[in-house]
Amino acid sequence: MAEGEEGVMRIGRRCYVSNLAWRTSWQDLKDKFRECGNVVYANVTRGDDGRSKGWGIVEFETPDEAIAAVNTLNGVDLGGRRISIVVQGIPWKFTWQDLKDLFTEIGDVERADVMQAPDGRSKGWGTVRFLSKEAAQSAIDSFHGSDLEGRTLTVFLDKKA
């Protein structure tokens, strides 16, 4: 999430990409994600030892390009591994309970998690596990693209689910 010149937050342009092959570089990410739009930033997170942590960030010029990446590249092969993509969009103050409560409107929620940074702050994305596939699809139909406290939600079925 980046802050613009007038203090306006630009939301929904970044994709979190996981399950990267260890040899995948930031350039590999950028080259692959250019299929969906103008990539303004790409990075593969590395540990203190310089080795890949298996995940990275790709930022597009527009939120629509980020959504296109989720819809077309989630689960594709990159460097011999099927990558997973999530676009951030959960309000920063949301806890797992807030997320669970929101999606309980749709169906029975087995578990909800909000991913956190090492300092305990929200990363702005999470997962919700429903007891039925129908409820999961209903959540996608109901919430994908909707605004929640000034953030645009991107909701999709996790390919590993």
Score class of each variant (00 low, 15 high):
residue 123 K to Q: 15
residue 27 Q to R: 15
residue 92 W to I: 12
residue 158 D to C: 07
residue 62 T to Y: 03
residue 68 A to Q: 14
residue 103 F to K: 09
residue 100 K to Q: 14
residue 12 G to R: 01
residue 118 P to C: 04
residue 113 D to E: 13
residue 88 Q to D: 12
residue 15 C to G: 01
residue 146 S to T: 15
residue 70 V to A: 05
residue 38 N to K: 12
residue 11 I to C: 09
residue 59 E to L: 05
residue 112 A to P: 01
residue 45 T to Q: 11
residue 65 E to L: 01
residue 109 V to F: 13
residue 154 T to E: 03
residue 146 S to Q: 15
residue 128 V to F: 06
residue 61 E to W: 05
residue 20 L to H: 00
residue 142 S to L: 08
residue 107 G to M: 03
residue 27 Q to E: 15
residue 48 D to Y: 11
residue 105 E to F: 02
residue 28 D to N: 15
residue 33 F to K: 05
residue 135 A to L: 07
residue 146 S to W: 02
residue 140 I to K: 10
residue 71 N to F: 02
residue 128 V to K: 09
residue 96 W to H: 11
residue 33 F to I: 01
residue 133 K to L: 14
residue 10 R to L: 10
residue 142 S to C: 11
residue 147 D to G: 07
residue 15 C to N: 00
residue 143 F to Q: 07
residue 115 M to W: 06
residue 86 V to K: 14
residue 151 R to C: 13
residue 50 G to S: 04
residue 88 Q to H: 12
residue 93 K to T: 13
residue 16 Y to P: 05
residue 137 Q to F: 07
residue 150 G to K: 10
residue 53 K to M: 13
residue 48 D to N: 13
residue 149 E to K: 10
residue 28 D to Y: 04
residue 65 E to Q: 15
residue 142 S to T: 15
residue 52 S to N: 11
residue 84 S to A: 13
residue 124 G to D: 13
residue 17 V to Q: 07
residue 82 R to E: 07
residue 159 K to A: 05
residue 105 E to D: 07
residue 60 F to M: 02
residue 129 R to E: 13
residue 58 V to A: 00
residue 67 I to V: 14
residue 108 D to V: 13
residue 1 M to T: 10
residue 70 V to R: 09
residue 155 V to T: 10
residue 19 N to S: 11
residue 34 R to D: 06
residue 147 D to A: 08
residue 95 T to F: 08
residue 57 I to V: 09
residue 16 Y to A: 10
residue 82 R to H: 04
residue 152 T to V: 12
residue 151 R to S: 12
residue 35 E to C: 08
residue 8 V to M: 09
residue 23 R to Q: 14
residue 85 I to K: 03
residue 27 Q to A: 10
residue 62 T to C: 00
residue 34 R to M: 12
residue 82 R to Q: 11
residue 65 E to F: 00
residue 76 V to D: 01
residue 144 H to I: 05
residue 72 T to A: 08
residue 145 G to Y: 02
residue 49 D to H: 03
residue 28 D to R: 07
residue 120 G to K: 03
residue 99 L to M: 04
residue 159 K to I: 09
residue 97 Q to S: 06
residue 145 G to K: 04
residue 111 R to V: 07
residue 52 S to H: 10
residue 98 D to P: 06
residue 97 Q to I: 03
residue 92 W to Y: 14
residue 130 F to N: 02
residue 66 A to V: 02
residue 5 E to W: 03
residue 130 F to V: 07
residue 92 W to H: 13
residue 20 L to K: 01
residue 118 P to N: 11
residue 22 W to V: 09
residue 66 A to L: 02
residue 151 R to L: 10
residue 20 L to C: 00
residue 42 A to S: 15
residue 50 G to I: 02
residue 43 N to I: 11
residue 148 L to D: 06
residue 131 L to V: 08
residue 14 R to G: 02
residue 41 Y to T: 08
residue 37 G to S: 00
residue 150 G to F: 11
residue 30 K to Q: 05
residue 137 Q to V: 01
